[in-house]
Write a protein that binds this DNA or RNA. Structure first.
Lengths: 221, 221
DNA sequence: GCTGATTGCGTGAGCAGCCACTCACAGGGA
DNA sequence: TCCCTGTGAGTGGCTGCTCACGCAATCAGC
C-alpha cells in the first residue's frame, strides 16, 4: 500500500530511530529494522536522510532539543542562583529517568569516532550549558553568594561534571549499577531523590558558596 | 612461516587489540586487521580467545589492571587524606593523558550492551574505587578533617564523579573538546595541570572539609 | 645419531550471514 | 498522460569465524 505518509509516520521514524539507537548503539541499530518498526520503507528512510549517519543526526537533533528545552526551562528570570541550581538538579534527575533514551542518544555522541561531528556536537551541546552555568555562577559571585577565588569557568566545568554524571546515572546500565554500588540505592526508585538533591546542593553550596553562606548549611541525614 | 609464537607476539596481540578497540570502538575494530597488525593469524586469535568478545575481555583485563595499579599506588599508608586525594588527582590526570587507550577501553565497557558483563564490570571496577574512596573519607571524618554530615558513601560517589570525568577529559575526543569549551585550555598541554589540580583540591576541600579546615583555604588565581 | 612417524600448534583462504544502500517500479494525484 | 512519492526485493561488500592443511618439534626404533 503506497502513497503519502502521514505526519505521525514521518515523526514516527525519528522516534523509532531514537529508541533503536539508544537501545542498541549506533553500529548495532539496523536501518531495515527501524523502517519496518516505523511502518515505512527503507527507501523512504534513505531518500529522506541520505544515509545512516544522516538519519542518526536527525534523531540526535530531536533528542538534544528535548534535553536543551528541559534544562533551559530551569533558568527562569528572577530566581536566585541557588533556586536555579536546585531546579537544574531536580530536572536533570527526573528528565534522565523519564527520557532515558534521549540521554543515551546524547551518550552515543560521546562515543562517536567522527572527529568533525564530535567537535561540532561538543561545541553545541556543551557551549550552551557552559555559558548558562558560567552566567549563573558569575551572577552568584557578583551578589556575594558565591566565592570569588575559583574562576567561574572552572567552577562551571566542575559543576557540569556532576550534572553529566547525574544524567548518566539514571539512564545507562553501567552507570545505574555504579550508582547502586556507591550509594546502595536503586536508581529507578524516586524515593531517594530528595535526599540526593539535598546532598548535591549541599556539596555544591559548600564547594562554591561564600563563607557567609556556609554557616547556614543544614544538616542532611 | 609457521611455528611457536614468541612471548612478545602473544603480548603483542593484546596491545594491538587495545589500540584498535580504543581507536575504533568495539564494533568497528576488525579481528582480521588486529591479527595482521600483530603479525599473527586470525586462527590463533580465535583459538586462544574463543570469539571477539572473549578477546575484547582479555584486552579489557589488561587495561583495567594498569588503571587499578596506578590508582592504588596513590594509597600509601601513612599519608594524610589530603595528600592521598591530591596524589589521586594528579595520577589520574597524568595516567589518562599517557595511557589514553586504556581509559578509552574502560569507556567502551560503559557503552557495552551486554547486561551481565556490564554489571560484572561495574561491580569490579567501581567496587574497588568505591571502597577505597569511602575508606579515605571515613578516616578523614574520624580525624575531624572532613565534615561528618555528608554520608561517606555519597561523598565518595560525588568524588568519583569528578575523578571519572577527569579521566575522560584527557582521553576522549568529545571530552577533550568539552574541556576546551569550558576552560579554554588545551587538554593535551600539561601546562594547566597544576592549576587544575589545585582548583579541584580546593573545590573538594571546600565541599568536604570540616569548618576548621576551610579557613586555611588558599587563594588560587 | 640418524630417520621416519606422530603430534599438535599456528595458518590464512574461504565461507556464511548480515546489513547499508539502490533502483526499477507501482500507483495516486493533477 | 505525466509527474512524483514511496516501495521493498535484491545486491555488493564487509567481517567474524572455520577448518583442512603445513611445518616444526618430539619421539621410537634402530
Amino acid at each position: 500500500m503506497p502513497k503519502k505518509l502521514t505526519e505521525e509516520q514521518m515523526a514516527g521514524i525519528i522516534d523509532t530511530g531514537i529508541r533503536e539507537f539508544a537501545d542498541k548503539g549506533y553500529e548495532n541499530a539496523n536501518t531495515n529494522v527501524i523502517a519496518k518498526k516505523a511502518g515505512v520503507s527503507v527507501g523512504y528512510l534513505f531518500k529522506t536522510y541520505g544515509d545512516k549517519r544522516g538519519f542518526f543526526t536527525a534523531c540526535l537533533e530531536k533528542s538534544l532539543q528535548a534535553l536543551t528545552d528541559a534544562i533551559s526551562s530551569c533558568d527562569t528570570a528572577g530566581k536566585k542562583p541557588g533556586e536555579k541550581a536546585r531546579a537544574l538538579i531536580r530536572t536533570t534527575i527526573e528528565f534522565s529517568r523519564a527520557h532515558d533514551d534521549y540521554i543515551r542518544m546524547y551518550y552515543e555522541v560521546t562515543v562517536l569516532r567522527d572527529r568533525d561531528l564530535t567537535k561540532e556536537m561538543a561545541d553545541r551541546i556543551e557551549g550552551i550549558s557552559a555559558k548558562a552555568y558560567a552566567a549563573i555562577i558569575e551572577k552568584g559571585q557578583q551578589e556575594g553568594i558565591l566565592r570569588k577565588d575559583l574562576p567561574a569557568k572552572k567552577a562551571a566545568y566542575l559543576f557540569d561534571n556532576i550534572m553529566m554524571m547525574l544524567q548518566f546515572s539514571f539512564a545507562g546500565d553501567y552507570y545505574k549499577e555504579r550508582y547502586r554500588v556507591y550509594t546502595g540505592l536503586e536508581p529507578d526508585d524516586p524515593a531517594g531523590d530528595e535526599a540526593l538533591i539535598g546532598q548535591v546542593m549541599d556539596f555544591l553550596r559548600a564547594a562554591l558558596g561564600a563563607e557567609s553562606v556556609k554557616k547556614s548549611r543544614k544538616k542532611s541525614k
